[in-house]
Design a protein around this nucleic acid. Sequence first.
DNA 1: AGCTTGTTGTACTGATCGGTACAGTGAGAC
DNA 2: GTCTCACTGTACCGATCAGTACAACAAGCT
Lengths: 201, 201
Amino acid sequence: METQAAASTPRGKRTRDAIVDAAAQLMYVDGVAGTSVDKVLAASGAGKSQMYHYFKNKDQLVEAVIDRYLEQILGNQPAIFELTSWADLETWTEQLLDVHRRAGGPIACPLGNLAGEVGDNPKLAPLVDQAYRNWESHLVRGLKTLQDKGELAPDADPARLAQAAMTSVQGGLLIAHIRHDLTALEDALRIALAYLRGFRS
Amino acid sequence: METQAAASTPRGKRTRDAIVDAAAQLMYVDGVAGTSVDKVLAASGAGKSQMYHYFKNKDQLVEAVIDRYLEQILGNQPAIFELTSWADLETWTEQLLDVHRRAGGPIACPLGNLAGEVGDNPKLAPLVDQAYRNWESHLVRGLKTLQDKGELAPDADPARLAQAAMTSVQGGLLIAHIRHDLTALEDALRIALAYLRGFRS
DNA sequence: AGCTTGTTGTACTGATCGGTACAGTGAGAC
DNA sequence: GTCTCACTGTACCGATCAGTACAACAAGCT
């Protein structure tokens, strides 16, 4: 793909990571358009020449940030990688909640924040879509596993159920975000889990 | 409150409306930070002095835009004002879907788009929250009506059920938005409705 | 007519935006 | 050592940003 420059030395990698880290954090709070390249560089301690050494332009930095978000998200819900029982699914929802319980930052999904803003950007929107599909794919795989084990009805559609689960997660996070109250996410996950359990076999 | 200047003549009102209309449309697509005051004025045909005659600054324009969004949203789902039966609730979800079926613009909730971006802005975030609560209040009232008529279980919590419904709407729209596919919203609404019907009495 | 008040056009400011130019430095390869 | 190339620091560019200054206009009221 060669869309971005790789860092070929440890020092370079450190700098590049520092830039992406700072950008990810700032954009999580202030949005993409609200986060200037200058602010990112000030926060990361890097200079402009570094930034444009590793990224062709701001959009490419945002691409890296989207990747970083996906890594963070999946890293915070490791249960999603081994969904082999209904109990595992419940563990997954618990991990999802725990991330936002030990607050610090705002209650929000970094990708969800981007979704609204990036909306039509022809370069960025597909990447956000891709990130969501990647996330969702782990759910699909898990549900298929359950289906193979005979714990999910054979006529259930794992892809569709997974999308419904993602919908609950995102809706719950959006409402929880603006209300500064996790209740919406808790309820959404509980309802979603109950819905999925309706396809138990 | 006197937060904003009112237009006291028909001519002034027309100008003010044109500015808000243009801003609402542009911000729906490009976000708040992505929409400059200059672009709004170019699109509305107004000059800068008009803008700052009616609004103290850009944030106050955004406030007016949020109000406009709520009007548009509620105007597109009139069934929400008279929810007196389960059939009315179904009608409401159908209206919700119809808005986005006769596409044109992107599939998205204008308030939802703002939610991510505005996230922490201490001036704007409460207004988005307020708009959502206003929207939701009509659902709460409808569910209470059903409860009074004995069609909803007495121990059901209308406020909590309404929040769950909003969560589904927003999640469905967010996923439908990035996928350019209404399926997510259709499923989310169907699931939400079924969940509510579980409290039928 | 003249006065008042709401409204409008245009020109401008200083700050910040994304992006570039270019000279320099650092560390590993030989 | 010295060559090389990845990496870095700083100064700069034109464009655009939100917001201001100020003079002119339009219309209702007396």
